[in-house]
Simulated scan of single mutants.
Amino acid sequence: MHVMIFGAGFSGKAIAMAMPEAARISGTTRSAEKFAALSENRMQPFLFDGRSISEALLSELKSVTHLVQSIAPDAEGDPLINLISTCVGKSGLKTLMPNLVWTAYLSTVGVYGDHDGAWVDETSECRPVSARSRQRVMAEDQWMAACAAAGLPLAILRLSGIYGPGRNTFRNIEKGTARRLVKKDQVFNRIRVEDIGAAARFLADRMADGIFNVTDDEPAPPQDVVLEACRIAGVEPPPEQDFETADLTPMARSFYGENKRVSNRKIRDMGFSFRFPDYRMSLKDLWPAEKPD
């Protein structure tokens, strides 16, 4: 099993660490300065800027059996698919990776758009609001077409808001950036990064094909998460702020334009168990390592 992770960032590292049985794991980054971090997470690092594929990377791809694509799309869609199409045409994936047997694409629950707080699952209509979510829909379509043409199973992992060690509400509290923004009836799902890694391994082991929501069990108001983190940390919570009058960047405000409750029942019914199914138990688990010295 040779796993290649394009865009081996926060989620990619968790996926690498969740696959100890892999004989080889490779990962790409835009900067050689990040090679050490990839190596520490069991990956052979390679440079990839999204515009060209080096000879070293081309050679590495020949033995890849499992591909994970984590690079965000742009206005033209998925940069990896577009580059492969330019290099080798419609024969694409199997030409560059003749041993490839399974592919995963890391997407986002943002593709569902706004459902006025209603529950959505993998069969729900996609109503993307933001440009970045529309780009994700385009990239999903590209990957489905490419894998269908190559006769490959494709697992699309739609991820909710990602957090975990070193990237969580406790860090925001410490930096003084935690805010209790209140918008009536607004909820978000979240996902602990280790559960992303475990879900990717679970789906790879089953050669799963299809769309899977990888998200926690409990969509909740964002201000409740901040309040719980402050309670655990023993600090005074920041005051509540009305979303309508709060000073926010356009991107931050755009997140609140999509309100939905995302179901993870499909992957759970397959037998997957989330280690961190809700934010309260997850924050409690994170606190010992996040506690200031």
Score class of each variant (00 low, 15 high):
residue 71 I to N: 02
residue 34 K to I: 06
residue 84 I to G: 01
residue 54 S to M: 10
residue 75 A to F: 08
residue 26 S to N: 09
residue 66 H to E: 13
residue 54 S to R: 11
residue 25 I to H: 08
residue 57 L to D: 02
residue 43 M to I: 02
residue 29 T to D: 02
residue 86 T to I: 09
residue 85 S to P: 06
residue 47 L to A: 02
residue 42 R to A: 04
residue 61 L to N: 02
residue 27 G to Q: 04
residue 89 G to Q: 11
residue 89 G to P: 09
residue 72 A to I: 06
residue 36 A to S: 13
residue 35 F to Y: 15
residue 29 T to Q: 03
residue 31 S to T: 13
residue 27 G to V: 13
residue 82 N to R: 14
residue 44 Q to V: 13
residue 61 L to W: 02
residue 47 L to V: 11
residue 81 I to Q: 11
residue 24 R to C: 05
residue 79 P to M: 02
residue 78 D to I: 03
residue 32 A to I: 08
residue 47 L to W: 07
residue 37 A to N: 03
residue 42 R to Y: 08
residue 35 F to M: 11
residue 68 V to H: 09
residue 39 S to I: 09
residue 44 Q to E: 15
residue 72 A to F: 05
residue 59 S to L: 14
residue 48 F to W: 15
residue 73 P to M: 04
residue 87 C to T: 10
residue 56 A to Q: 15
residue 80 L to G: 00
residue 45 P to S: 07
residue 76 E to L: 12
residue 77 G to Y: 04
residue 48 F to E: 07
residue 53 I to T: 00
residue 63 S to Y: 10
residue 47 L to M: 10
residue 43 M to N: 01
residue 50 G to Q: 10
residue 33 E to V: 07
residue 39 S to F: 06
residue 56 A to F: 05
residue 24 R to N: 05
residue 49 D to G: 12
residue 38 L to R: 01
residue 71 I to F: 02
residue 40 E to N: 14
residue 82 N to P: 10
residue 62 K to S: 11
residue 86 T to R: 15
residue 67 L to P: 01
residue 48 F to T: 06
residue 46 F to C: 05
residue 37 A to Q: 14
residue 81 I to S: 06
residue 23 A to W: 11
residue 74 D to L: 09
residue 82 N to G: 15
residue 24 R to T: 08
residue 71 I to K: 00
residue 57 L to C: 05
residue 86 T to W: 12
residue 44 Q to Y: 07
residue 72 A to G: 10
residue 62 K to W: 09
residue 23 A to H: 08
residue 52 S to L: 08
residue 47 L to E: 05
residue 88 V to D: 02
residue 77 G to C: 08
residue 41 N to W: 04
residue 78 D to K: 04
residue 29 T to A: 08
residue 47 L to T: 03
residue 52 S to M: 12
residue 51 R to S: 12
residue 23 A to T: 14
residue 63 S to A: 15
residue 65 T to P: 05
residue 31 S to L: 10
residue 39 S to N: 10
residue 43 M to W: 00
residue 77 G to F: 09
residue 57 L to T: 01
residue 41 N to C: 13
residue 34 K to Y: 07
residue 51 R to N: 14
residue 89 G to K: 12
residue 46 F to I: 00
residue 88 V to T: 01
residue 83 L to F: 05
residue 35 F to L: 10
residue 67 L to N: 00
residue 84 I to K: 03
residue 85 S to E: 15
residue 33 E to A: 12
residue 48 F to K: 05
residue 62 K to Q: 15
residue 57 L to Q: 04
residue 47 L to I: 15
residue 42 R to G: 03
residue 71 I to Y: 01
residue 38 L to F: 05
residue 64 V to C: 14
residue 61 L to H: 01
residue 65 T to Q: 15
residue 69 Q to W: 06
residue 79 P to R: 00
residue 50 G to C: 12
residue 35 F to C: 08
residue 25 I to L: 10
residue 72 A to Y: 06
residue 39 S to D: 08
residue 24 R to H: 12
residue 34 K to C: 04
residue 78 D to M: 10
residue 49 D to T: 10
residue 40 E to V: 04
residue 49 D to Y: 11
residue 74 D to W: 10
